[in-house]
Design a protein around this nucleic acid. Structure first.
Length: 881
RNA sequence: GGACGCGUAGCUCAGUCGGUUGGAGCGUUGCGCUCACAUCGCAAAGGUCACAGGUUCGAGUCCUGUCGCGUCCACCA
């Protein structure tokens, strides 16, 4: 038998094995009408990204799922790819150019976009290489990019369809503007963060004398004020009716408007109305026919409408305005005011609400069927609680601003005819029209904006399979099965994919959505590069190995709970991999190939198995059953921990130790081999590399000829091998050995010293199982001799109790009995209190009548056992004195 | 302001259907380099399951409330 090297070196095997998988073409899945498909799409990482711990968790989960399903015999397709990340990528390339002293406007649009493509060709696949490093078994042949021709076609198709349906429109509204990226953002891209701001109270003079005090957090916007609004019920301001306010510094006349939208309790109850710079004010402006005065440029400096403040940055202008107000005695006070302010999700700059013409998607009609699909259970969230988050958001969905004032992305397929007037000049077309269909003019210009990146990502589950073409892949793999993602992305992506899937394909895009937790550092802060608290998965791979990283991160991630990570957690996986290696090495050293051949089912029926053999098979299949169930329910950590527990603390700690007594037996050989090879298959989705490496050394031709472990079948369940009887009996023997070991340890008997053990049984027959297994009991307890029968406690012996057995260890006066006495007394107290509580329960008619019979019977039996034990214990105590 | 999640061993966390004595990893302590593994083995110490009520024969587990921590959402300027 081929042997494993003495030391386990993950790095030596990983690259080699990954390459063998690629060479073997194991990742690619082809539609096969005779088999069921199982498909998932990767949440496309963006091309500027590098693998972080969130990816490591996300992609490990998906890889576990896809490997599991592949082994279960599905045609398992994991569609990979990347998204073009319009804003982020443009920023990166702009920064790169800036280092060379080039601005994007110097290059011009076309050259700049070429530059981005060049950048993408060099750096855009970094993340893909890293996913391979992580062991991801994606179908790389199909890898897609949101700017690929096919996917771009899908974007054009969708835009034109929605426009024709009246679900896309252009309008002048308040949007979230990032002054640094100089583009509009959607509501989701503006992330609210609590900020310690100020609430400024400012006097606005009334034309006929007197004044009104308004409160604002952004005094600079007063340059665009066009009215003062108060609540019609507000008695303080009744006499303002019909009066005019003079806007300080600007000297514009402001109307007073009365509107119930104004909150009387906030500030002074008087609201300055700036329709061009605040969504509420915008609404008030529309209602009351107020002008919209935009006072800011694209970079959030004050524009010519701001008079003498023109050119100042918004915050600079704020200071200047406050100073000027103070000079004029119009500034009352500022008070600390903590409030939530939107920030750009790409560059974290404070977002400015800004009036500008943008393209929007009408969402309500799209949301309705998407809400129904989830309510009817066609799509299920795991854990279930995210359903509510999704539904709440969908119920309150607002129109989606999809135009971005950047260059990198899908350019909006809208053309304007220069000679047509007003709204009639809009031509929506997938390709540039030669002339205006209305007036025939050839003076046609494309809209300069590009689309939100998510406008292509929301099509991902079907555009990647070739839509709008009706490809065989699309027919076969769509709808996909599971979507695995993080909570941050539910609104950006998950919800929109559901809407798009139903709208454009008439079918939900996936059946299950598994939302995993967020990876945080040990203090609970989200890991981010800017905070410097990242643990780089690639560093961890370099240090501990990929399998260790995967296993660790999975085993500490409870379903949907956030993960608090510190580097030391990876030792868990490393140690387990090491254990697995050495366990396998030991087995391989001892297996004789010709003895391992057998059909386990036949073998199981036709061979007399010992208790440990029946036990380990039972434990394997119990574990397999549990692991399969957990994977079906997205409980990855429980699955991983069950395998860990089985292999380490049952198979290694007990079975292998026991089997050492009879390792050359045919039966031992078969079972050792079978449990190992089946365990490797069960573990493979979690630790793909090490299981493959070991698998290749096994005489696997006997069962599953030739191929990689990754395409082997998932172990077949054999319920008949699960034996409660074997598990119970073995548990008792383990307890017996453990008790003897405890006693040895309590009396400091070094392992080398062999001891004699006397076991007093409660009734005849209790000795049977022990006698049948006496060899391993002696070996594991390191006892030279074990006497079983009806025995009284010898003088000068330690005693212990396990179940109905009493264990004596003659000590020949080696130790002092004070310790033993204390231990016994402690034990007595514990038992006495337990007996008392059980007695109480048994006397309670409510209990005896209402609890199931077997529970009552069990309690009675347990009580009897305890009473017996305490009797013996008291005897012992008496004997010791 | 709304919603959700979490308070279990010194630390980080599991805990299935409510059912006998609440688990793991790390850390600590003692013993052991027994020919697979010191990235290991054997054992020990360590718990009022945040708090208060309630449901139940029975609650870490279900319900209500309180306190503490965290996350997401939100147009009170």
């Amino acid at each position: 038998m081929e042997e494993l090297s003495k030391a386990y070196n993950p790095h030596e095997v990983e690259d080699r094995i990954y390459k063998s998988w690629e060479d073997g073409n194991y990742f690619h899945a082809k539609p096969d009408p005779n088999k069921k498909p199982y498909s998932i799409v990767i949440p496309p990482p963006n091309i500027t990204g590098i693998l972080h711990m969130g990816h490591a968790l996300n992609d490990t989960i998906q890889d576990i799922l896809i490997r599991f399903k592949r082994m279960q015999g599905f045609v398992a397709e994991w569609m990979p790819g990347t998204d073009h990340a319009g804003i982020a990528t443009q920023n990166v390339v702009e920064r790169k150019l800036a280092k060379e002293g080039i601005k994007r406007h110097d290059l011009g649009r076309e050259k700049f976009v070429e530059e981005v493509w060049r950048w993408r060709d060099v750096y855009g696949s970094t993340i893909i290489r890293q996913l391979k490093k992580l062991g991801c078994s994606c179908d790389w042949e199909r890898a897609r990019f949101t700017m690929d021709e096919g996917l771009s076609d899908a974007v054009l198709e969708v835009f034109t369809r929605l426009y024709e349906k009246g679900l896309i429109y252009k309008g002048n509204y308040i949007i979230n503007w990032c002054p640094r990226c100089q583009t509009a953002l959607s509501d989701e891209e503006s992330q609210h963060k609590d900020v310690d701001g100020m609430l400024y109270h400012i006097k606005y003079p009334v034309k006929d004398g007197g004044f009104v005090i308004v409160a604002t957090t952004r005094p600079e916007t007063m340059l665009g004020d066009v009215a003062i609004a108060v609540n019609p019920k507000d008695k303080r301001y009744i006499d303002l009716k019909g009066k005019t306010i003079i806007l300080p510094l600007v000297d514009r006349e402001l109307k007073i408007i009365f509107d119930p939208l104004v909150d009387m309790k906030f500030g002074t109850g008087a609201l300055k109305v700036t329709p061009a710079h605040d969504p509420v004010d915008f609404e008030l402006g529309l209602k009351n026919g107020l002008p919209q005065i935009n006072v800011m440029n694209e970079d959030a400096t004050i524009n010519s409408n701001g008079g003498e403040y023109e050119g100042m940055d918004r915050l600079e202008a704020r200071e200047a305005i406050i100073e000027d107000l103070k000079e004029r005695g119009l500034f009352i006070k500022s008070e600390a005011h903590r409030h939530a302010v939107g920030h750009c999700y790409r560059c974290h700059t404070m977002v400015e609400p800004r009036l500008s013409p943008q393209w929007f998607v009408k969402m309500k009609p799209l949301a309705k069927p998407a809400i129904d699909a989830v309510k009817k259970g066609k799509i299920k969230f795991h854990p279930e609680r995210w359903t509510k988050v999704y539904l709440d958001w969908m119920d309150n969905i607002r129109d989606w601003c999809i135009s971005r004032q950047i260059w990198w992305g899908h350019r909006i397929p809208v053309y304007y005819c220069k000679s047509c007037q007003g709204k009639d000049n809009i031509i929506v077309s997938k390709i540039k029209p030669d002339k205006c269909p209305k007036c025939g003019s050839t003076e046609i210009e494309q809209d300069p904006d590009v689309l939100d990146t998510w406008f292509s990502s929301w099509l991902w589950p079907f555009s990647t399979f070739g839509w709008p073409k009706e490809t065989p892949e699309l027919k076969y793999f769509y709808p996909t099965d599971s979507l695995v993602t993080a909570q941050e992305i539910i609104f950006f992506w998950v919800a929109r994919m559901i809407m798009a899937g139903i709208e454009f394909r008439g079918q939900i895009p996936f059946k299950d959505v598994y939302i995993h937790g967020t990876v945080r550092d040990i203090t609970g802060t989200k890991m981010s590069k800017s905070l410097g608290n990242v643990i780089d998965p690639l560093d961890m791979i370099a240090k501990y190995g990929t399998d260790a990283l995967r296993f660790s991160i999975i085993s500490i991630t409870a379903q949907g709970q956030d993960v608090f990570l510190s580097e030391s957690k990876f030792e868990l996986g490393r140690n387990f991999a090491n254990k697995l290696w050495n366990m396998s090495r030991f087995i391989l050293m001892n297996l004789e190939e010709e003895k391992t051949a057998a059909d386990l089912c036949v073998f199981f029926k036709e061979t007399d198995l010992t208790l440990p053999q029946r036990w380990i098979l039972s434990r394997f299949y119990s574990t397999l059953d549990y692991v399969t169930k957990c994977l079906d329910e997205y409980k990855f950590n429980e699955a991983a921990n069950a395998i860990y527990e089985f292999l380490w603390h049952e198979f290694c700690d007990w079975y292998i130790e026991i089997v050492k007594l009879s390792i050359d037996d045919k039966t031992s050989q078969v079972i050792l081999y079978k449990v190992l090879e089946k365990s490797l298959r069960m573990l493979h989705p979690f630790m793909p590399f090490i299981t493959e490496e070991i698998w290749l050394k096994l005489p696997h031709e006997l069962d599953h000829p030739g191929l990689s472990i990754m395409v082997q079948p998932w172990p077949h369940m054999q319920k008949e091998m699960i034996s409660i009887d074997a598990e119970v009996k073995m548990k008792e023997l383990i307890e017996l050995v453990t008790t003897i070991r405890n006693m040895r340890s309590a009396w400091n008997l070094e392992p080398k010293r062999e001891i004699e053990v006397i076991i007093n049984i409660h009734k005849i027959g209790d000795e049977k199982t022990i006698l049948e297994n006496i060899d391993f009991v002696k070996r594991l307890a390191r006892a030279s001799k074990v006497d079983i029968g009806k025995f009284a406690k010898p003088k000068n012996a330690a005693s212990g109790i396990v179940g109905s057995l009493e264990i004596f260890l003659p000590l020949e006066g080696l130790i002092d009995f004070d310790k033993e006495r204390l231990r016994l007394k402690k034990e007595e107290v514990r038992m006495a209190s337990e007996i008392k509580s059980i007695s109480g329960r048994l006397k309670d008619k409510n209990f005896t009548s209402k609890a199931p019979e077997e529970v009552v019977a069990k309690q009675e039996a347990y009580k009897a056992e305890l009473e017996l034990q305490i009797k013996k214990l008291r005897n012992n105590l008496k004997e010791i004195g």
